[in-house]
Design a protein around this nucleic acid. Structure first.
Length: 287
DNA sequence: CCGTTAACCTGAGAGC
DNA sequence: TGCTCTCAGGTTAACG
């Protein structure tokens, strides 16, 4: 479900409510997420105080004392639901499927705080929690990942080195977290449209100017989305509270057969499938 | 090593 | 209020 901007918004929301708050109780209702929740999970988290919450690519990291951490990935359908106690029916949904009430099914984990309950809900169970016992282990976990899409290491020099002589297309590169971390299926299409680059263009065929654009517009598209509160694709019937608005800014995603929104362009947005993932691009301005 | 495919899951929506 | 099919914002083992 969430890509870098959405995870960033979730992180900011969590941080604003849960910084320096202690986890009083941990309940696991279903341990079978992407990776099975280990036996010591509840004991590890109980009584831990959340010193900080950060994001790295699409992961949320809870920081505890003594260099202990908990990494959370939301997978495709994971959402967090924060409920304030003592407020009957008061409901804050931190994620991007808006729902007035806590979903009835698929609540797998509950973290209980003094004033809040935080539920992890995930119908498809592609998300996971991972306990981390040291800074070294944390660094090791992220070692295989490529530079952050919004980081300084994602630059022209890096792209030149990585794309040289590669036959893989640029859309697949952008989705490859070992190449660059944080970009997912929606933003890959959106970024390439802003760059005027065809998603099927091979790494080795990208010009220096193309690479410069990829760096520049990955930054601007993702940042603009964060500014807009991320993207909310599906609204349930009981919509309430705040939702992301970047979906209103989509130029290609889910715009199959519609006109290109670029002013001077007369092209039509086409949908193709690359590596089993829907890909949208303009048949005129993306070369 | 490189690149691609299938698989992991549930639910919504379309079409019949 | 049926049934079947496709598709979904992610990742990764297994294959040629």
């Amino acid at each position: 479900m969430p890509e870098l901007p959405e995870v960033e918004i979730v992180k900011q929301s969590l941080l604003s409510k849960l910084k320096n708050k202690k986890i009083n109780k941990v309940s696991v209702f279903n341990r079978n997420l992407r990776y099975r929740i280990e036996g010591g999970f509840e004991k590890f988290l109980k009584n831990q105080k959340i010193l900080n919450i950060t994001r790295k690519s699409k992961f949320i990291i809870l920081h505890f004392t003594d260099s202990k951490y908990c990494i959370l990935h939301l997978g495709m359908s994971g959402t967090l639901h924060l409920i304030k106690k003592n407020h009957l029916n008061f409901f804050t949904n931190l994620s991007f499927y808006q729902s007035k009430f806590l979903p009835k099914k698929h609540n797998h984990v509950l973290l209980d705080f003094y004033k809040f309950k935080l539920f992890y809900n995930d119908p498809r169970r592609f998300g996971f929690f991972k306990l981390v016992k040291s800074k070294h282990e944390l660094d090791a976990f992220f070692e295989p990942f490529g530079p952050e899409a919004l980081g300084k290491k994602f630059n022209l020099f890096y792209l030149k080195k990585k794309l040289k002589n590669k036959s893989k297309n640029i859309k697949n590169f952008l989705l490859d977290q070992k190449f660059v971390s944080g970009i997912g299926n929606i933003y890959a299409s959106e970024i390439l449209h802003t760059c005027k680059i065809n998603p099927l263009k091979k790494g080795k065929n990208l010009k220096i100017e193309d690479m410069k654009k990829i760096v520049k517009y990955s930054n601007s598209v993702l940042k603009k989305s964060i500014k807009n509160g991320g993207s909310t694709i599906k609204n349930f019937k009981n919509v309430t509270g705040s939702q992301g608005n970047f979906q209103k800014e989509f130029k290609v995603y889910e715009r199959n057969n519609l006109k290109c929104l670029r002013k001077e362009c007369k092209g039509i947005i086409k949908k193709i499938v690359i590596n089993n993932r829907s890909t949208f691009y303009c048949n005129n301005c993306q070369k």
